[in-house]
Design a protein around this nucleic acid. Structure first.
Lengths: 223, 223
DNA sequence: CCGTAAATGTCGTCG
DNA sequence: CGACGACGTTTACGG
């Protein structure tokens, strides 16, 4: 990874046009070819170019160096290097990568294995039940054999209710399934989302990740 | 901006749990307090903490230094500094900021000036036509005087169809306007969005930015 | 490679 | 502070 601190101006031309006036910034060049330009504030880079892309440096006696980074879509990032204040290179090696815990995929997996949390005698028909506009997280049948579509979110917001509503509309057109009711299940459900869901006859269920994981985890099981 | 290259392990506990095994990484500490941890690939940091947040360093003779970064939501980023390979500080000053020349606003402007692209004899009632839940991009009348609400996007996805649907529902409650039909106009329309729109009786129109600009641009005009 | 949904999304603006 | 929409969203996953 190459780290350059330089007084520079930057232009991006691609999906939009953007210009950065002359100032001191960090230019990060990663081993995979990614370019990032950072200032002293904000989480996000001011400008960037994702790999794969190619760098052309134009260097003359009189003019400042100009770096032109181009990708396959024809987008360009042009960096005019007015003054280089620092330039160092570091070999970081390959990163073992991030291990995540608590994302939606795990919630779905856990709930699929414990649909009885939703109701006594319920059973899972399938995960990722397909519809014309995309898969429903879970399709279940309650104890009376009535179909229930379940949308699972980590954070339950209004978009998720809309998503489930679309699925329900489609599923209810299938005479073999109809009537299909809905459950909106999330670790946290925003009041506005709950209001909308209940207004549409969709039941809201708050999931306790630790409890669900505990039931599935032999180490913490009590019996 | 402080740049540290170090062999480290990292844990994040907050909206989810994430763990990074021991490896060499860049730790960037910005003047505003933002922390970013980068590896040799990917545009995005492996881990981060956005300002405002506070840093506590625990340093002992025997154990490696541990940096604990905490924000107001109680999320924590814990960096165990096993070996520091580089540590430098740079004063970048305040950045003049990014100047963007966007596309979306121009699309609305261009289509407003060329509503006849939507249909022969159509006319514009107004841009940003107000409703209780926000303004509709364009309100037009077709050649028969029937109202049409137009939602414009650069990329037409399902959210945009939902947005237009909500507007249409409200506009159709106004007896002076009803019936109001809808047009979903975008440079690119995703199949799923098109399916949903057409299912709801909303017409989809793909906009050609270059052609629309050409008509308006005296330099490229043919007559 | 395209399409779809998730994200510690982030970042504005507006109540 | 929360809701909502835009973003050069980026990223992961499946067909």
């Amino acid at each position: 990874m190459r780290l350059v601190i330089a007084r520079c101006s930057v232009d991006y031309a691609g999906r939009l046009s953007a210009h950065l006036a002359e100032a001191v910034r960090l230019i990060m060049v990663k081993a995979d070819g990614t370019f990032l330009i950072h200032a002293e504030s904000s989480h996000r880079p001011l400008n960037w170019m994702t790999a794969p892309c190619s760098l052309v440096v134009v260097s003359t006696d009189e003019e400042p160096d100009v770096w032109t980074v181009t990708n396959k879509r024809g987008e360009t990032l042009t960096i005019t290097m007015l003054e280089v204040l620092h330039d160092s290179d570091h070999d970081l090696g390959v990163d073992p990568g991030l291990v995540k815990d608590g994302v939606e995929a795990q919630l779905q997996e856990l709930l699929a294995a414990q649909v009885e949390l939703l109701g006594e005698g319920w059973r899972l028909v399938r995960r990722e039940y397909p519809t014309a506009i995309g898969p429903v997280d879970l399709l279940c049948k309650d104890v009376d054999g009535v179909s229930v579509a379940v949308e699972i979110k980590r954070r339950g917001e209004i978009d998720g209710v809309e998503q489930l509503t679309r699925y329900l509309e489609l599923l209810n057109r299938d005479p073999l399934l109809a009537p299909v009711t809905g459950i909106f299940a999330a670790q946290e459900i925003k009041p506005q989302a709950r209001t909308l869901a209940e207004d549409r006859g969709i039941r809201c269920v708050v999931l306790d990740y630790d409890v669900m994981r505990g039931v599935d985890d032999p180490d913490t099981r009590l019996f």
